[in-house]
Amino acid sequence: MVHEPNDPKKVIEIHGLTKVYEMGEVEVRALAGVDLLVDEGEFLAVMGPSGSGKSTLMNILGCLDRPTDGTYLLDGVDVSTLNRDERAVIRNAKIGFVFQSFNLLPRTSAAENVELPLIYGDLGWSRAERRKAAMDALFRVGLKGREHSHSSQLSGGQQQRVAIARALVTNPAMLLADEPTGNLDSRTSEEIIGIFQSLNDSGKTVVLITHEPDIAQHAKRVVTVRDGVIQNDEKIQQHRVGVRDNVSGIGPPVPAIAAEATS
């Protein structure tokens, strides 16, 4: 592949990716040759019916798993053959995960949850620097004032905001969200998707896996997977806009943050 000098930087560059699960005698081809290019600053939604291979793709994109075959360059680095520890380093530095079930640590404050990736990272930051970065990230998702709340004291939407802050705090190459609105009502889903949109507006690459077309319509590009291959890849000209009034992904903080924090 030869790029023109003024091509946008590629965050994801995948060629001929396959994933085969061996289950005794039976082989399951969860991914059967996927090619995918994602530029920096894109907002990509991955859709597809159940069992089509979305989660398998997400695990490989997130460096949680290795492909059976094919190459995967993440932010210019070939990660398809890395070992366990090397993948852990890549996950820490380049990927921000957001899960359907929030996956915050129980009995741990929001700020401590957000700090967690920095503890495992290579940045060599002091405690105070880590705390400051966590506070900034929580501020960006509109959770100022709830830094010391534990997950049990937060609503689902607030927990997902903490999870997004945790994904942001290392300033990764991309945010990778697997059904981030699957456990939320539609109003809160709109808010969460709004956060992703504003983060994307400020330049963050977002890959979102969902089976809700409504949610997918907020992205700038939708890829549909079926039976382990990409069946459809379309740009969305008129994408929907989520609720944006209480986050500070771009621009100065909005006064509504305080209202959200105390609600």
Partner: peptide, 15 residues
């Protein structure tokens, strides 16, 4: 689950 979360966000086996 906690171990899974820690690993996902970058904890190595030895951490």
């Amino acid at each position: 689950r906690e171990i899974g979360i820690r690993m996902a966000i970058g904890a190595k086996g030895r951490h």
